[in-house]
Structure formats: C-alpha cells, structure tokens
Write a protein that binds this DNA or RNA. Structure first.
Lengths: 354, 354
DNA sequence: TGTTATACTGCAAACGTTTGCGATAACGTT
DNA sequence: AACGTTATCGCAAACGTTTGCAGTATAACA
C-alpha cells in the first residue's frame, strides 16, 4: 500500500520479489528462468509478482557476471557521409540480428581522436571493435596495442597493410580498372584521373587500377593526366578540369576517385562546350545518391556498403564468440565493386574494342 | 617467467597486482587513485607494475557498482539519411565532450522494431535514450512505459503531442510559412504543396505553415493544390507535378515537404517547357546536399541537425546527472529553421509585396 | 519402522571494484 | 611507561545475478 506513495520507485530486483514472497533469491531466479526444479505453482506466483512490479533483469549485473556486454563499437572517420552511412546500416542490421548493441563514434580523420576513442571503447564496455582508420593514420601503435590486449577487432574499408588483422575492404583496384576499361571500350583515349592527395590506401589502389587498364589496352601513360587534388569537392573537380582544358591538354574523359570530383569535372567540361558523353566521358566512384540526380546521370563504381558492414560485423561476432583474437584470425575479405554505367559515359553506339 | 609462455594472457585485475606485491586489493585500488593514505613509495611500485601488466580497470565492474554506464542510446528511423546523419553527428559531438558512449539503432519506421529496440536498450545498459519515433508510431505505450520506469529520455525531431516528455524539435510551422511567404514575395500566386501521407506531426505543421502564409497574404486556398503522396521520392514529385500540368491546373510554384519531392517537381516542370524560376518556383525542405547540385540549385528550408542533436544530448545528460525523470522534466525546445534561397525560387528582380 | 527416491528450495560463492571503518605500527609527547 | 598522533594498510560489505551443491520434506516402498 504505502509503497505506492513513493514518488520514485526503485527498480525492482530479484531480492524484492524474494522478500515479498518469503522465498530465496535463487528460487526467484530459477522460477523466472523456468528451471525444472521449481514447482509450477510457485513459478506462477513469482511470474505474477515480477510482472506486477515490472521487473526487468539488470543487464549491468548480467554482463558483469558474464564479462560479456553484447556490445560492439564502430569507429568511423565520418558520420555525415553517404557511403559510411551505408556501411553503418549494414552493421546495425547484422548486429540487430545477432542481438548486439552498437556504439558509434566519429574521429573526423584525426589520429588523436581515433586513439582516444579506441581507448575509451576498450575499457571493458565493448566485446569488440569495428574500425575504419582515418586518412592520416600512419602511426598504428594503438591498433597494435589492441592486438596485444587480445581485444577482437575488424578493420573495414581502409586497409592498413602493415598490420595483420581481419579486414573487410572493397576491391578498389578492380573497380577502378573496370571503370577505366569501360571508358576505353567506349572509345575514349585520353583519360585523366582525379585523385586526392594519394596517401590513402584506397587512392593508391585505384590509381593502380587506372594504370593497369591503360597498360592492358596499350594506351600510353601520360603522367600529366593524373591530378592530385587537396580537396575532393565538386569545386575541386571543376577547377582541375577547367585548368586542364584551358591549358590545351588533350583529354576526352575523366575517371575520378569520387563522385563529387566527377560531377565537378563533368560540369567544367560542359561549361566549356563539350558534350557529355559525346565529347567527354566521366566515371566517378561510390555511387552516391547524387549520381542519379545530375544531368547527365553519372556513371560510377558502386561500393557494397551494406554488405561490407554486414560482413565485418559477422566476422567480429564470430571472433568474439569463438574467443579468437585479431592476431590469430587475420584474413582479408575483399568485396567486389559494381560498375554502374549511366549517361555520363555511355555513347550508345557500338564501339570496336581495340 | 612461466606466465609469459601463456598464449592468452588474462586481463590483469587489481587482485593480480595485489598478490604480486603482497598487499591488499584495497591498497592497490587506492594507490592507483592517488589516495593520500598510501605512501608515495608504494604508489610508485603499484603504478609500475600496473603499467607493466597493462592494467586497465574493468568498466563492467565499475558501471555495475555505480549502476551508471555513461552510455546513451539513439533510436532513429533511418540511418542512410542526410538529415538524421547530421543529427547523429551533433549527438556524438556532445556525447564525446561529456564522456558518454553512444549506442545507435535503426527502426525503419516500423513500430515493432521501435518497441523491440527500446526495450532492449533499457534493460540496464544505457543511462538514457534519445528517441525519434517512426512515422507510423501512433501507439505510444512503449514510451509511457519508459516514463513509468523512470528512464530518462528525450524525443527529438518528431513531436509526439500526446505525451508529456522533454522534446527537441524543429519549427516546421514557421519554416514552412517562411518558405511560402518567400514564394509569394517572389510573385508566385498558385502555389502547390506536396506532402506525404500527412499523418506525421511534421507534415501537419508544415501544411499549417503553408495555409497560414496563404491566409496572411489573402491568397485563396485551393484544396486541389495540396497533394498527398504515398512516397517522397523524386519520382513521386515528378509524377505528381506532371499530372497536375497535364490536367491543366493553374500552378506556378511548389512548396514540397522534401527536397527530393521538390527536385522531382522541378524536373517535371522543366520537362514541360516551364523555366525555373521564371515560370515556376520551387522550394524544398531539409537542405540536403543534393539541393546545391541540381540545376537550377534548389531553394530549401534548412533544419539545424547538428544543433538539434547537441541540444537533445545536453538535455538528456542533464536529466541523467540530476536524476530527473522524463515526467518531471517536460519541456519542448523548438529550434529555428533557416530559409536558404537559391536559384529555383529567386527571380532576381524586385517584387512588390502584395 | 527404516530406506530410498522424488520434488522442491536455500546457501554461498563468484564476477571486479570501491570505500567506510578498523587495525597496526612507528614515533613523539607527557 | 603510558598515551596520543600519524601514516599506512587491510577487512569486509556492497552492487544484482547465476548456479553447483547441499539440504529438507514428502511420499512410496520394503
């Protein structure tokens, strides 16, 4: 009776039920878990009271006892980012399926924040980590420390070649190569490549793909057609291509490391009177939503974000539940990209392959 | 010596340090916490060994003891969504600042998943919740239950008028009104409104803003200019406006509930030979990234996503740390939107206000 | 009556940490 | 010599739950 007057009712515990029913805590626990040792009659009484009190087991106590939290954490350089959102969606899907909670944090490509977050996330709360390192992460001592501590983790999207650990990445090399081969098949011959500063692993792989495609089709490599940009924005792409055109450089196509760069390139070409795709072909990378919205629509290399997230999560949970450390479980899964041909690179006529 | 041969070294505990140093666990704990009761000499030895063993306190034990996890959880309808990403970024920023971990989950606007996730997230692991209900959430018993349990939570973005709880929302009404007034000021008179099925609180507020603007400027309300669509995609916007044009309906502008709808509308108008913004004005809602990329660029109402996330998080953490339940802390923060005028609605001439 | 099986239920330890309080020694003071 | 002070450290309880083991009562059987 009087208990109801209490404004702030404490969370009920097994002990409360036990005392109310004059039985032991152990019995309550077993009754709620439908243990055969407990009589049906008592089970009923216990469950009744548990429902009335709105009893929910205290997960902090459970995970403390089990030393398992059923939580994993994601370390991502960016949150407001179409591709990373996609990956996160895949992670959440798989985690939900397996009953795991997912903590998220953003590093903004800053090593300090990366280190800080990883440290905070590993102080016992999470069973494992999904990490995408930042573009500037060359110092990998924090990852090596993770390994030493035996904390399960999986690297995703960005490869870190210097560390042996489970990884899930996208086949940037083949993706880029396929894209450039497509441009070549469409008859473009002077294909420029727009990339960022080039330090990131992905950038290098895509450049290699570009080079391989040229080589395979016996197209001479022109160094001046590969542009390193500080920025991967639309404006940067626009500016780069405009300068090239102004300088009189012969160029009839662009393969860009980003959809945004590609769109900038496309706009610059059009602004200078070139028709896309007739005079100028463009292929981007990532298949952002905007690729379908620009005119002409942008051909691009799609990365399987959801699949990547799912795969990484599956691997991580497997490591956790089999108690395998990252060290003894190094295997790199490479996911296929898919070339999506849209209007910006499809001349709609049969092209003789050289 | 032999311990080093052990392949899988267990995580060191205070007990391990204590035994190695032949002192009590309590002393180790105090030494590491720099308690004045412990001699500097012993502190040094303890810290030395702790460092050597790479000791990190077990957070599960800590949070179990304190019954505080320093974790909050976010329940969001969508993950791959520009606006929600922005909000999440704000949440993560504020949480990082205050040392909280953030768990995330996606409901996909499905009530069942919403209920399930909220239940899972509240079984003790999180100190509080940030919830954006789905569009179809009319049954709010799960929220009422949260209140009864005294678990702190803040509703964000979507208002749920039937429940008294702390909320952070955006001023959809004024945002919509300002947008429509802008169209009116630009001289448009036959302004259509594209909305979704209209059940969501935000949809209703925006419709009201639309109506208020018309009324204020003495423009007769034409019911047939308000279209409820099943879908908020570009295609849906395109189709809706195309049908209107074909039907011969007089219409010279669109205010859409979404940037995507607005872009669809714009493309439809242009496809039918109308010049934007000369013959046809368009304003969207949300300021997605694509708004700047379409031609002409899209005017839109920007929602302060980061600010919203930060505000909600601040409120939640305050509730947690002051032990205020959602019931006794109901206050609704309404954040201002900002009209961003771009090419799709700016006729670039002085317009006499009627 | 004694033995054994059956059906329940409770005791207590364990998970790792913190912390109030009590204990011990060394040293100084009277 | 007796007492007080100070510095240093340990004991044990507490947080909520699970679970192996032991215990008790009842009933069935010889």
């Amino acid at each position: 009776m009087a208990a109801n007057f209490c404004v702030k009712m404490k969370r009920p515990r097994l002990k409360d039920i036990a005392e109310a029913l004059q039985i032991s805590i152990a019995t309550v626990s077993r009754a709620l878990k439908n243990h055969p040792d407990i009589s049906d009659q008592l089970k009923l009484r216990v469950r009744q009271l548990a429902d009335d009190l709105n009893y929910e087991p205290n997960n902090m106590a459970l995970q403390f006892k089990a030393q398992r939290s059923k939580c994993i954490a994601v370390v991502s350089p960016r949150i407001v980012h179409y591709y990373f959102s996609t990956i996160l969606k895949g992670i959440l899907q798989e985690a939900e399926k397996q009953g795991y909670q997912v903590a998220v944090c953003e590093t903004g490509h800053e090593l300090i924040r990366e280190v800080k977050h990883i440290k905070a996330l590993t102080q016992g709360l999470n069973d494992g980590l999904l990490i995408c390192v930042g573009n500037n992460t060359t110092d990998i001592r924090h990852l090596e420390k993770l390994q030493k501590q035996g904390i399960p983790f999986v690297l995703f999207d960005k490869d870190v070649s210097r560390i042996k650990a489970p990884k899930v990445v996208v086949d940037d090399y083949t993706g880029a190569m396929t894209a450039v081969e497509h441009l070549i098949a469409q008859g473009y011959r002077h294909i420029a490549h727009l990339q960022d500063n080039g330090v990131a692993h992905t950038s290098q792989k895509r450049l290699k793909g570009y080079l391989s495609a040229l080589k395979k089709h016996r197209i001479p490599y022109d160094e001046s057609l590969v542009l390193q940009l500080n920025d991967i924005s639309i404006a940067a792409g626009y500016e780069a291509v405009e300068q090239m055109i102004r300088s009189g450089k012969k160029m009839d196509a662009v393969f860009a490391i980003t959809d945004e760069l590609a769109i900038g390139a496309m706009k610059a070409a059009m602004a200078h009177g070139m028709a896309v795709p007739q005079d100028f072909g463009v292929v981007g990378f990532s298949n952002w939503q905007i690729a379908t919205l620009v005119t002409p629509s942008l051909s691009t290399v799609a990365q399987p974000g959801v699949e990547l997230g799912q795969t990484a999560t599956k691997m991580l949970i497997q490591m956790i539940e089999n108690e395998q450390s990252a060290e003894e479980y190094h295997l790199t899964r490479i996911l296929k990209t898919q070339l999506i041909v849209r209007d910006s690179s499809f001349r709609k006529r049969v092209v003789v392959n050289t």
